Simulated assay, not measured.
Amino acid sequence: MTDPSIRRILFPTDLSACAEGAFTHAAWLADRFGATLYDFHVRETPGFPPLDWVDDLVVTAEDVAADLGLPLAPEAEPLRPIDLVHEEREASDVAAAILRYAADLPADLIVMGTHGRSGVARARLGSIAEAVVRHARCPVLTVRPDANGGASAFREILVALDTADPIPPEAAWAARLARAYHARLHLLRVVAPSLLHPQASEASRRAHLGLGRLEGQLGSEGVPAVVSRVCEGDPAAVIAETAEEIGADLIVVGSHGREGVRRALLGSVSETVIRHAPCPVFVARHQGEGSAARIE
């Protein structure tokens, strides 16, 4: 089975320390997927001089593997430079500029840093990263600095699933990421509490069966280690609790890309997870209802 090709990875940067960690992951994925990495900086100050030094930047697979503490693949060329393109534009609305550039490429994946603000600033979803996540047409990986302010490999990946059959995009992406980082993959289905919903026990049984099939399929597709669980409760709360329990380094969720009022209300599980997750979050887009993702 194959999934959509990843040829162009967009890395928007504000040149902050948070962006540095995200760049490491963007470069690692570009190397693993054989993609071109587009480094994109928006100048908000008119007349600000361009960053000429970026054009001379050379990053190799060996550099990135060392930063993440990951082994190089046997077939890797350690000293081969990652295909890196730098682009700068001047704009007052940074998020809009990023989204336009992503659409122009078009980007297959966006990787960007987030400052992980708390309190009112985070609740208002005012950050550039959150605006990009909400409106991008492609998957978005938001990366927060680790405890040391840098980048760490994803070793425990949690993917929250609405369904296991057919295979949703978030499962296919999680499998690719698990292989890229040699990580353990945790599959999670959340069903309604049985005391409130008499059919929940049947829903739980079906969820277990679906996850069992998916677990076996992912294992046969080369995912290093796959475990699964079914839990009852509020989806966003259960995802957060499970992430903390397993020490998740990355949470993968799906988004149906709702428009209009339904999007403005910000009631979706994925947006709640993005607001409150203690670790990086990968948001996979559902391109069309009823379409199954494929795993490579």
Rank of each mutant, 00 (worst) to 15 (best):
T2A: 03
G116Q: 07
Y101S: 03
A76V: 06
P280L: 03
S201N: 10
D108R: 05
P71R: 04
S16K: 07
D31I: 06
D55Q: 15
L10M: 14
P224M: 06
A225L: 08
G267D: 09
R258N: 05
G69C: 06
G149D: 01
A66R: 15
H197W: 08
P49E: 14
V226Y: 00
L72F: 02
E259P: 09
R117Q: 14
R100H: 06
I98L: 07
Y101P: 00
A153F: 04
R117T: 13
A174L: 14
A103M: 02
Y38R: 05
S268A: 08
D104N: 05
L158K: 04
G150I: 03
A180N: 02
A26D: 07
P4F: 08
G212V: 02
P46T: 14
F154R: 02
I274N: 07
P78E: 06
V133M: 02
A180Q: 08
T163R: 15
L187A: 09
F23Y: 15
R205Q: 08
F11Q: 03
H256C: 08
V226N: 00
C18H: 12
A107N: 03
S92Y: 05
N148M: 01
T60G: 07
A207P: 15
S5G: 09
V253I: 15
R213Q: 11
E244S: 12
A35C: 12
A27L: 12
P224E: 10
D83E: 15
F154A: 01
T163E: 14
A91W: 10
L125S: 13
G254Y: 10
L250M: 12
E20N: 04
V238H: 03
R155T: 13
Q199P: 00
H135K: 14
G267L: 10
A292K: 08
L105R: 13
E215G: 00
G212S: 15
A95F: 06
I239Y: 11
L218D: 09
D165T: 15
A237N: 05
I295H: 00
H25C: 01
E259N: 10
A174P: 12
G34I: 14
G288K: 13
A200D: 07
L141W: 03
V252R: 09
A183K: 02
P78W: 11
F11R: 05
E75H: 13
V226R: 00
R7I: 09
G113C: 02
V159K: 04
E62F: 05
L188T: 00
V283H: 07
V191G: 04
A207W: 09
